[in-house]
Design a binder for these strands. Structure first.
Lengths: 109, 109
DNA sequence: TTTCTTTATCGTACTATTGCAATATAGCAA
DNA sequence: TTGCTATATTGCAATAGTACGATAAAGAAA
């Protein structure tokens, strides 16, 4: 018997997957780490912090920015990047939500 | 002037990126959602839950399993999957850690 | 103005991911 | 045994991601 496929993806599932995907590369995790650890918002120092060429770092920054995980503001001829707390919070809440749901139940394996 | 690249990625950064990458697809988020919401650990019902063919679902389950996000146990000729809480917790802790670091500082943009 | 500095974009090569039909495997039922 | 059910694997086509050299853009400095 052929079953009907029950559903496509919800907007929330799409959103969370986009955020996770943006975080799904060590270079981008390293950028987030770095931005979180630096007192002020630093721009192109990230290039010196990573084992990657400048265009590659720029590309990773663009992806993080597109996902809403970081913000960039122009400062002279440099650009100041920093983490967008709100987006990170949204992601954390979703993950916490899933985790809580499991802990409430008795898992069977 | 040519700067030396300061570092490569830490093991933690590699691990977290792997977890994020595994979560970086709506189908795999939907699987996690479903596993979290179902009272008992269900196996191939996931195929009926998603708009994907069985081999594709099997592939996504394999990736989640490889990342350590889910566990599978054989039950007759079926396989019972469930979320690996420990891995999810590890991921959540890391994300929480980054978020906390930012909130402590005054971000500048 | 010219030059330097900083970041973004383009073009391209390479690699990885996604999805599925077909097939294989493995246990259960008869 | 044969057939059925549940998953996994293979093979392949299409798409997406990664990395970087070359170059562009745009403000700062001289």
């Amino acid at each position: 018997m052929i079953y009907m496929k029950k559903k496509y993806y919800s907007q929330e599932q799409l959103d969370i997957a986009t955020l996770a995907k943006a975080l799904g590369h060590p270079a981008r995790i390293a950028i987030m780490d770095y931005l979180a650890s630096v007192n002020a918002c630093i721009c192109g120092d990230i290039v010196n912090e990573l084992p990657l060429a400048q265009p590659t770092v720029s590309q990773h920054l663009k992806e993080l920015k597109n996902a809403g995980l970081i913000k960039g503001s122009i400062e002279g001829n440099a650009i100041c990047y920093c983490i967008n707390e709100a987006t990170l919070e949204k992601f954390n809440n979703y993950m916490k939500h899933i985790t809580t749901k499991i802990i409430e139940k008795n898992s069977c394996c």
